[in-house]
Design a protein around this nucleic acid. Structure first.
Length: 567
DNA sequence: GCAAGGTC
């Protein structure tokens, strides 16, 4: 039996080969410079295996000539126009390879990622292979991580391709094309005639672009329409030495009522307190506390951190991570998974970092007993592990170095222990009102030593004894004001898109770049932080669609989310 | 000249 295995990308074909062959294989080049064909015997199923890959989707979709040109038809006719499926220009060589390999095989085993797009790519592979060999048996290997036991199990117990999932993706592809092309042409033609500012530029519409823009506009309007309100609170503090020999420190006691928006009520309470401000300590509690180490790293988290900590645009972070992946320094950078597989082998990866001058000593500590299993998040895309370094990279510069360092420190932090400390809470009453002060002492920094992006600091509260009484240093009624929300940052926008199902790990950064390139969204810097504001055009587009009064506005995320998750 | 999703 000859089995042709087809993975979604070259790196997976190689990994599968190394596992199934035990390292004994031969390989052949193909016309595509990234793709190789690997040959070996697999005695477990008495079969000869050939493993190759595609490179993402094989086919593209577009309208025929009658509808492809912008002025060839009324945009609304694009909803009924035929849509052609064809092998893309770059896919021709890959298709040729698949066909010639399929002719020699008895069975096609599909090894695309085990997510919905993978099911669709698998159906493309199936169609091409069947066109070359009509009676080829088609099976699907199911695996959730590139781990030897799972890969062998998948090879020995293949299942069927899930055609319903592939069809759902096909429907989404066609809908996105029809809606995107029709609305874009309609908007562009209408607005170019009406507004001088958009002359010569495309006013695109996309089912991900518009909810993305919608988030920016929504926040902008919240800021614009914000009205500050005054509030009042009792400020209570005591100055006393931090320890028996120490200098005086001021301890602030926070009001349990936080603050009141009714001035008269706050004033009445304050009058009562100040008439006899003797303060009595009712309870002193010291308890152990932890600061949890971070979760394993997903693409979305990498982009948020990159934007917030490294000041790099989400798209720039992803591009760098992809380059480092292609150089063999990082695992696959597009993942939604924030849990390592229980069988994941950490030690060889930690060992590779032991030579680093900056974090090598910490890695050695993990090897010598400080290791602790990473926390498990709630997400698993069943295709890729969390992002982690696969090799030590010593010679990087600039932004590549920053991104690699962040990912590596994050990985080591995940394999370390939570930081440990103790928290003291001092409860007091004054004039019948309750106040409290808290203090923090860090006992063991643990993961914080390798992960400077997290801060955990607090001050020790001076000693207080239950039942003691004191005269506060300050007891005042103070006024504050509610403050306006901030404009969105890129990190905020990535979070909103992720939570609302707009785009994927691989495309979120692209959509943000698109709404900026189309000049729907403008970047504005304030104190070193980049904020996103809508342009007049951006606001106008969103308000226009909102005023149509659709039950699910195209500027809001509901519609897109439902298109993605419908089964 | 148009979308979003894969991928190098």
């Amino acid at each position: 039996m000859r089995v042709l295995c087809v993975a979604e990308k070259p790196s997976i074909a190689k990994s599968i080969t190394q596992i199934l062959s035990g390292g004994q294989f031969t390989s052949r080049t193909t016309a595509n410079k990234y793709i190789r064909n690997y040959d070996f015997d697999y005695p477990q199923t008495r079969a000869q295996f050939t493993v190759t890959s595609v490179s993402g989707h094989l086919t593209a979709h577009d309208f025929p000539d009658t509808h492809r040109k912008w002025h060839s038809c009324d945009p609304i006719s694009l909803f009924d126009a035929p849509v052609e499926t064809f092998v893309s220009k770059d896919g021709k060589d890959i298709e040729k390879n698949l066909k010639s390999e399929a002719r020699r095989a008895d069975m096609l085993m599909i090894w695309t990622d085990c997510d919905r797009e993978g099911e669709h790519i698998g159906s493309e592979v199936k169609r091409v292979c069947r066109s070359a060999k009509a009676n080829i048996i088609v099976k699907r290997a199911r695996f959730s991580a590139i781990i030897a036991q799972q890969i062998h199990n998948a090879a020995q117990h293949p299942v069927e391709l899930d055609q319903a999932q592939a069809d759902a993706v096909e429907a989404r592809i066609v809908l996105d094309l029809r809606i995107g092309a029709a609305f874009t042409r309609m908007q562009t033609k209408t607005l170019q005639d009406a507004i001088a500012q958009v002359e010569g530029s495309v006013v695109s519409y996309g089912p991900c672009q518009f909810p993305t823009l919608g988030f920016v506009v929504q926040r902008y309007l919240q800021v614009k329409n914000f009205v500050s309100e005054p509030f009042w609170y009792i400020f209570l503090s005591l100055s006393r030495p931090s320890s028996s020999q120490g200098d005086n420190v001021e301890t602030e006691f926070k009001w349990r009522r936080v603050h009141l928006f009714d001035h008269d009520a706050a004033a009445v309470i304050y009058e009562h307190v100040i008439s006899n401000p003797i303060t009595r300590v009712t309870k002193v509690v010291e308890k152990d506390t932890k600061k949890w180490k971070p979760l394993p790293l997903t693409t979305v988290e990498l982009q948020k951190a990159g934007s917030r900590l490294l000041k790099l645009a989400p798209k720039a972070v992803l591009d760098i991570a992809e380059k480092l992946y292609n150089q063999g320094f990082l695992s696959y950078p597009r993942t939604e998974t924030d849990q390592f597989d229980p069988q994941f082998d950490f030690m060889p990866l930690i060992e590779k970092q032991a030579v680093d001058p900056a974090w090598g000593a910490f890695a050695q500590g993990l090897q010598q007993g400080e290791f602790s299993s990473p926390r498990r998040g709630k997400n698993n895309d069943k295709a890729h592990p969390p992002i982690h370094p696969t090799a030590h990279a010593g010679g990087l510069q600039g932004n590549e170095k920053k991104v690699y360092e962040f990912i590596t420190r994050r990985f080591l932090a995940c394999c370390s222990k939570d930081a440990e400390g103790s928290m003291t809470t001092v409860d007091v009453t004054c004039g019948g009102e309750a106040f409290y002060a808290t203090g923090l002492v860090v006992h063991r920094r643990n993961y914080l030593d390798v992960y400077p992006y997290d801060k955990w600091t607090g001050s020790r509260v001076p000693d207080f004894a239950e039942g003691e009484e004191f005269q506060p240093s300050v007891c005042e009624l103070r006024e504050g004001h509610t403050s306006s929300p901030k404009y969105l940052t890129e990190a905020d926008l990535v979070t909103l898109m992720d939570k609302n199902g707009i785009g994927t790990d691989a495309t979120i950064a692209q959509h943000i770049e698109t709404v900026i390139n189309r000049e729907y969204v403008l970047e504005e810097y304030e104190g070193g932080t980049k904020y996103l504001l809508p342009s007049t055009l951006g606001i106008g587009l969103i308000e226009g669609y909102n005023e149509m009064g659709l039950e699910k506005s195209v500027s809001k995320p509901q519609l897109r989310r439902e298109v993605r998750y419908v089964r």
